[in-house]
Amino acid sequence: MTPHSTLFRRELSLAWARGGGPLLTVGFFASVCLMVPLSIGAAPGRLSAVAGGITWVGLALASLLSLDRLFERDFESGALDLVNLGPLPLETICAVKCAAQWLASCAPLALAAPVAAIGLGAKVETAGLIALTAAIGGVAFAFVGGAGAALALVSRRGGVLIALIVLPLLTPPVIFGGAAIANFAAGLPWTTGLILLTAYALAAVALTPFAMAGACRNALS
């Protein structure tokens, strides 16, 4: 068993239990999506026009839920000390943590997203694209969110700070993902949004582990 898979299994079991787990995350997402028709009215034309956009805002908010525990628990328990004296560099450890966070939180959301969007009036044909963009966008959410969570380690009110750091950085994927779905539904060229979304997610995977590792080192010293 490689150190990567040893660590991934631990992180996944922690992520699965963190913040109430995937059920709570999906439940929160569903609540956000349900509130919209209650507030703007259920007129079918009005709702279906914004279904994709609302779904993305819900995804971004729901992906914030369990972030505050991503590094904080391990930092306070001393587990970050332990993993730091193991075979993998801290950058890789942080990336593995975010990958587990994606699988436990963002992947279930990606499955729930088409259901919510169609419930709000999106066309059934968009379901595949919604799930795909939510899965790719979730990668960006997990990694950028991880960077925010690591940066907040040294502060007292970490949870609030994470939301403030992370939400602006989650705006581009929300724009790209929402645009891809809206254009697809309207029969317009939609691949640009998907490409930009994927590029943003890949950039997050490539860059944020260095930020996370730096922030963790700073917190540990």
Binding site: S13, A17, D74, S77, A79, L82
Partner: peptide, 13 residues
Amino acid sequence: HLVGHADGLAVGR
């Protein structure tokens, strides 16, 4: 090996 005050154990596992 480092054995510190914080034992690094995840309480839920």
